[in-house]
């Protein structure tokens, strides 16, 4: 996900970062505003689309009954897949297929700490499997962060039908899945973190890098922060090195930015819910811009 930048462009960006005034006027730790639309894909259990700058990610969540992980028989489980839309790389060519698996495994790792005992149906035999399918519509920088925001928003939006377990008298269990749209459970997403990616440019680190900034970053660190400010995952995926002291500073700012992002996401979702309650028929989804234009 890199652009080929000239040396002058790179120097310009680096100078901006050093002066704590980036090319779009932000400070090093400023995040761009993002938009969230949830519940926009009707045949899923939950969905959300998050846009940040030009980057655009759609996440669909589907709950299905399946077998639990043998190591955790009393919990449900997550399955994460990430796909790049074939048009997503409008501005840049992708390195390799590894990016998709890397993104998916990063998301799966951030979800490891989430307690899924509510999703257990019959211990050791049946549970809800939450399939999280993410589609990156436009990748224009900071894909990890946007993806994690979209996953959290989609999980907040997820409704799982209640299941009744009955014994048929022969020792076999029968499951009855409720088809009442109001007879549902919500997921407890308090432990779902967001990823904050920090890019090292020159001797400083910045949050929410644009694709140009990413292209001249020497190394990147992805930090997953939950609402308590604890780290759920720290990984440095790119090749370059980073000084330990800078790393500690980066972790510090990741904590602040992450908590801020989470509260912002919460507020946005609440606002959306309120708006929806007031204007239930308002136009949403992919054709909104088009419809308002005509």
């Amino acid at each position: 996900m890199t652009l080929a930048l000239s040396r002058f462009e790179q120097e310009d960006i680096a100078a901006g970062v050093a002066a704590n005034l980036r090319s779009d006027g932000r400070l090093r730790t400023d995040y761009r505003p993002f938009t969230v639309e949830s519940g926009i894909v009707s045949n899923t259990s939950g969905s959300a689309r998050v846009r940040l700058g030009l980057t655009d990610v759609l996440v669909g969540v589907k709950a299905e009954i399946g077998e639990p992980d043998q190591a955790k028989p009393t919990q449900g489980r997550f399955e994460v897949t990430v796909d790049f839309s074939s048009t997503s790389a409008s501005a840049a060519a992708f390195d390799d297929d590894n990016t998709e698996t890397e993104l998916a495994s990063a998301i799966a790792r951030t979800l490891k700490g989430v307690d899924l005992s509510a999703l257990c149906i019959v211990p050791g035999e049946q549970c809800w499997v939450i399939y999280i399918d993410a589609l990156i519509l436009v990748a224009a920088g900071n894909a990890y962060d946007v993806l994690s925001l979209a996953v959290r928003a989609a999980l907040a939006n997820t409704r799982i039908p209640k299941v009744e377990v009955s014994d048929d008298g022969h020792g076999r269990v029968e499951l009855e899945v409720s088809d009442d749209p109001h007879h549902v459970t919500e997921l407890d997403i308090r432990a779902v973190p967001v990823i904050v990616t920090l890019s090292k440019i020159g001797a400083f680190h910045i949050v929410d890098a644009t694709i140009e900034e990413e292209s001249c970053a020497k190394s990147r660190v992805h930090v997953a922060v939950d609402s308590k400010g604890a780290f759920c995952m720290v990984t440095k995926a790119s090749a370059g090195g980073i000084e330990p002291q800078l790393l500690f500073d980066a972790l510090e700012s990741a904590k602040q930015v992450g908590q801020h992002l989470l509260s912002q996401l919460e507020a946005t979702l609440k606002q959306e819910e309120r708006a929806l309650a007031m204007f239930p028929n308002s136009q949403r989804g992919f054709l909104t811009d088009l419809q308002s234009a005509t």
Partner: peptide, 28 residues
């Protein structure tokens, strides 16, 4: 992973939950 002579971290990977203080202590 650390490149000792110029003190550069080349790989960092932490899974599981921890606080900032503890993470820093761990990396040291």
């Amino acid at each position: 992973a650390l490149r000792v002579s110029d003190n550069l971290v080349t790989l960092l990977d932490q899974s599981g939950e921890s606080s900032l203080k503890l993470s820093v202590k761990a990396l040291e």
